[in-house]
Design a protein around this nucleic acid. Structure first.
Lengths: 201, 201
DNA sequence: TGCTTTCTGTATCGAACGACACAGAAATGG
DNA sequence: CCATTTCTGTGTCGTTCGATACAGAAAGCA
């Protein structure tokens, strides 16, 4: 009963992927509807019929980004055998992810809308919430290590997570400024040099 | 011969300061001419007569930012008695500067235009150049310490500078997301925990 | 007091913005 | 084949963008 009428002439998922790449490159406000329709290969009425609005399209794009790009970083955190290799994997996977040839550099969640304007307030809030999940994810992995007796209970889990998340967010700026994967890996190595002092008894 | 004609009815420096604060808060593309004229308390013809264009106004605002906000961070680097306190001062001054009540949070050079669009390409390039000067500044201070025999010659000066600059740039994101000065200081402390491993022989 | 020069306020320019009306095209169900 | 439903392409809506034309106001110089 839902497949009546003229069928959609484009691949919705493919179009969403193109939109994600454009938002990733130009940001939320930087990517115009005209830019998007060209990149997606459709007319604006098709865009609005399929996605509702620019903001709704962006939210779907962010969701797709988290589903496709997120695991490359977060699988390493969850599956690592110990907390140190979890954080090290987090940063090395980030270095790799932020510098892949043919893909926009840096993290879409960090870069696509940092300045809150009247029109982008809700989008900014959603991105901020998304970034806060990064803090929670790292914290959870560290708490797990404390519970397992792997790290001393005296470790300030929130502070350690905030430090490594801050480094990762800084890597988005570095990546946008052209830093190579090697340079990003060097930054990750620098951050891991703080591990023993930060987590020691 | 230049003071003929009707005199300007507003304080150019005061208006520029207001423009800087608005660009700092909303970004280059996020601050419209209409926003700017309201904040500066002048009409748009006065803005164009006094500053030339939106981009020229922004460049003056960035220059003012570097002249007024920069020293709070960089004086600590240049005047510190040793390299470690130079970098520690760099980060603690950053934590303070990025969380001052009544001022926009984070660094204007990092936050005001990260997504390159057709209209903002030259502004983005200028900001990137400005960020690169941060790398050079830190590197120079570290090289000076190596030359003085304070740090071993084996230290990878560029890598250490890149690490600390990356942390500082990440602190801009954290500050925009609402991190308190204490939280930023905690991040700075975390980064300094890497100092001895990074600069040891 | 003119005359020149420069700035201010109103009003507006063409372009681009996000969003959509409308008519025709392309599918299914009867 | 026809009616119904849904999508596509053209064209355009009202708004806002950055940037100015123009006329009048306010100063110095003669």
């Amino acid at each position: 009963m839902a497949d009546r009428g003229r069928p959609r002439s484009f691949d919705r998922n493919a179009a969403l992927t193109r939109a994600m790449e454009l938002f990733w490159t130009k940001g939320y406000e930087g990517a115009s509807i005209s830019d998007l329709t060209v990149a997606m290969g459709i007319g604006s009425p098709s865009l609005y019929a399929a996605f509702g609005s620019k903001e709704a399209l962006f939210r779907e794009a962010i969701e797709l980004y988290g589903r496709t790009e997120g695991p490359q970083i977060w699988d390493a955190v969850e599956n690592a055998p110990d907390a140190r290799s979890a954080v090290a994997g987090f940063l090395t996977a980030t270095a790799h992810s932020f510098s892949r040839p043919g893909k926009p550099r840096g993290c879409m969640v960090v870069l696509s809308q940092l300045n809150t304007t009247e029109a982008s307030a809700s989008v900014c809030a959603a991105l901020r919430e998304n970034r806060a999940q990064g803090q929670s994810g790292l914290e959870a992995r560290l708490r797990q290590a404390v519970a397992a007796g792997e790290l001393p209970a005296s470790v300030d889990v929130g502070a350690v997570a905030a430090f490594y998340l801050t480094v990762q967010q800084g890597m988005s700026i570095q990546a946008r400024d052209g830093a190579s994967e090697d340079k990003l890996l060097s930054v990750a190595k620098g951050a891991m040099a703080a591990w023993e002092p930060l987590t020691g008894p």
